[in-house]
C-alpha cells in the first residue's frame, strides 16, 4: 500500500464514509457468504454501481475494492472447484492441491488485512492505493 494523502483533493466527511463503507460491505459479504466466493464480488459490484455517479474519491475506492475482489474471486473459484473435486469427483489429494490452498489463503489473508486497514484509513479521509490494484484502478476510473 502506498500513496497516502496524495489524492487530488481532500475528501469531505460524506465521501470518506462512503469510500470506507465499500471496503466494510465487501468484508461483511465475504464473511457471510463464506465459503462461496461470489457474494463479496456481488456486493462490491452493487456498491460500485450504486456510487457510479458519486465523487471521484468514492468511485475510485469502490473500483479498487471491486478489482481486488475480481482477482480473489478467480483464485477462490479455483479453490472451491478443486476442493469439491477432491471431496466428490475423485480428484487426488496432492501436494500441488495443498500448496494452492495455502497460497490462496495467504493472498486472501493479505487482502482481508489490507481491506480492514484501508477501511479505517479512508474513513479518516486518507487515500490508500494498493500495489498492483491501485494503478489498475487509475486506468478504469477517470475524474
Amino acid at each position: 500500500m502506498n500513496g497516502k494523502n496524495n489524492f487530488l483533493y481532500a475528501p469531505n466527511e460524506d465521501e470518506s464514509e462512503k469510500a470506507s463503507n465499500s471496503y466494510i460491505l465487501s468484508l461483511i459479504a465475504l464473511i457471510t457468504g463464506f465459503p462461496i466466493p461470489l457474494f463479496n464480488l456481488v456486493a462490491a459490484i452493487i456498491f460500485y454501481l450504486g456510487n457510479k455517479k458519486g465523487t471521484y474519491f468514492v468511485r475510485w475506492h469502490c473500483m479498487q475494492v471491486l478489482l481486488a475482489h475480481v482477482i480473489t474471486f478467480v483464485i477462490n473459484l479455483i479453490v472451491v472447484v478443486w476442493v469439491l473435486g477432491v471431496l466428490f469427483w475423485n480428484f487426488n489429494l496432492t501436494n500441488n492441491f495443498i500448496a494452492f490452498i495455502i497460497t490462496a489463503a495467504v493472498f486472501n489473508l493479505i487482502e482481508f488485512i489490507a481491506t480492514i486497514y484501508t477501511a479505517i484509513k479512508t474513513r479518516k479521509g486518507l487515500h490508500i492505493s494498493w500495489l498492483v490494484i491501485g494503478p489498475l484502478t487509475d486506468l478504469f476510473v477517470k475524474e
Binding site: 483464485i75 501436494n95 495443498i98 500448496a99 494452492f100 497460497t103 493472498f107 498492483v132
Partner: peptide
C-alpha cells in the same frame, strides 16, 4: 504489475508444492 502478481502467485504455489505435505 498485474502480470508480476500472477507470476508471484504461481511462483509461491510451485515453491510450496515442493513440500511433501501428504
Amino acid at each position: 504489475q498485474l502480470t508480476l502478481l500472477m507470476l508471484l502467485f504461481v511462483g509461491i504455489w510451485q515453491l510450496l508444492s515442493k513440500i511433501n505435505f501428504i
